[in-house]
Write a protein that binds this DNA or RNA. Structure first.
Lengths: 288, 288
DNA sequence: GTTCCGCATGAATCGATAG
DNA sequence: ACTATCGATTCATGCGGAA
């Protein structure tokens, strides 16, 4: 079997991605720098300039993403002048004009969001995970993220009611009665578009990143083993770490050298285990 | 004390509201007909025409809302052609151009969302509750919606790191650090902008578009007793019923006569109960 | 009286079929 | 080709009758 690769590249993804071929990634999942934060990088993007700053990068993402791939964008607008800023809304509209399909908007419910109090708003306990695609026929492996059903099912499934059977079989004689058998052994259900993940607030080195569970969930849902995952704003490398643990190849791009070091350290730890048996792994030229 | 009023008016709110004076409502909370649904009323609004249909009504809402009032709009875009439609995003942008402030976006998490399975998406378990205001200085009674502190919150506060506390104090010198220490001894906490309400979908009581708990929450948060609440798309009168139970005056407008009858029945029942007890409907030591 | 358990229902969405 | 209708899919909730 092929050697798994995890690459951390330093630089602005707008430039770095130019070295990557078209249609090469199955999934892009990222949490870009929010407007007005990370002032020392990317020139400190102001909310009003966010769309303009993001779009050329989105164009590169569109190019390197496979036609059956998915782009997950974790983002949330900040409150400016007492209002929610509109740059995320405008970004969605703009991306659609440039060929992206806005397939879905997942809500990441942050169960343990930061405490605080303001006179005119409550704590912000959710972020958007926007799903974009290049085509309607994208890969989705729903069974990989099924969850245990609620308590109600235990009693419910003891006896299937007559109406359940009636409703399932309905009138048309076309289909098999397969639903009933599915239900009888069912202990898992498909999730919804609301995700409940706690933030990892004890992370001292790199705050404000998403918890590893978040990229892990989307990697499970949209890729198979040995597929290629890209995080163009890799930060401390959470996405690449998750990808590596799940036997996916990945590329992480990060403009800040210190974060790159962190990311490399994270991902090389696991790789060292591999390296005991094999030869070199990372190496920029060897990827494509 | 003044007699409490609950009015159900039949007609299109665009017309009916013309008879109402400026600056008369403290809160507008409503769930308008979603695009492509309720085909027999309002001409069956197509997604592409939604903003155009909504805006003249939004203009009336702006007029009748008090300067310190709030407009809560419960809405969710549908999936069209494999994509989320953008009419809600465009509506937000358009309303801002016409004088509304987009203060906040609450997420209503529907724990018991509609079942189903599709190859390209999961069940939709959330809707938007968009908060609009006329001014930054709107009324908000946060203490009225405080919730019991869950176990997770207790552990979260225990684990506040030293740097967390330092940052709290330094950021907003006026009250933030103080509030954190207050939290430690509280058994109640302020909620977040994610609301968890199950839909009321059983057949006995006439099912409402949103559960009564939803308007109730916003009425508590944004009005005092005897304030005026408006629901311009009243449906079966859930908002007015909630308002009445909480000693708020309310006006509900609904275009469908049959829904109006339902709404009148709901709200007259409670009034009869109160009237039978004689004395002022809104007596302080009365129902609540 | 409690608790348990059966069960209809819902702002849904897709794909196939019909006009 | 484009639009309208229809069937299939599926999960959590609260009511009400039963134990």
């Amino acid at each position: 079997m092929e050697q798994l690769k995890t690459e951390i590249l330093t630089g602005d993804c707008l430039e770095v991605l130019k070295n990557h071929p078209d249609n090469s990634f199955h999934l892009i999942v990222t949490s870009p720098p929010y407007a007005d934060s990370r002032n020392n990088t990317y020139g400190g993007i102001k909310p009003d300039n966010y769309v303009k700053w993001f779009m050329p990068r989105a164009k590169e993402f569109l190019r390197v993403l496979r036609d059956d791939g998915t782009f997950i964008l974790n983002i949330k607008e900040k409150a400016v002048n007492g209002e929610r800023h509109t740059y995320v809304l405008q970004l969605i509209l703009e991306m659609r004009l440039h060929g992206w399909l806005w397939t879905e908007e997942f809500v990441w419910h942050k169960k343990n969001c930061y405490p605080g109090k303001w006179p005119n708003r409550f704590r912000d306990a959710w972020e958007r995970c926007l799903q974009f695609n290049k085509s309607k026929n994208f890969n989705m492996y729903q069974q990989e993220v099924m969850e245990p059903v609620g308590e109600w099912a235990k009693s419910r499934l003891k006896n299937l009611s007559a109406t359940d059977k009636i409703r399932n079989n309905s009138n048309v004689g076309s289909g098999f009665g397969k639903n009933v058998s599915n239900w009888l052994n069912r202990d898992k259900a498909y999730p919804t578009n609301v995700l409940h993940f706690a933030t990892e607030c004890n992370n001292k080195t790199h705050s404000a990143v998403f918890p590893k569970a978040l990229p892990r969930w989307f990697i499970k849902l949209f890729t198979k083993e040995h597929d290629w995952v890209l995080d163009p704003f890799a930060g401390s490398g959470t996405t690449c770490e998750a990808a590596q643990e799940m036997n996916r190849n990945s590329v992480g791009i990060e403009i800040l050298a210190e974060y790159c070091d962190l990311a490399k350290e994270k991902t090389s730890k696991s790789q060292n285990r591999l390296l005991n048996n094999h030869s070199s792994v990372s190496g920029i030229g060897g990827l494509f």
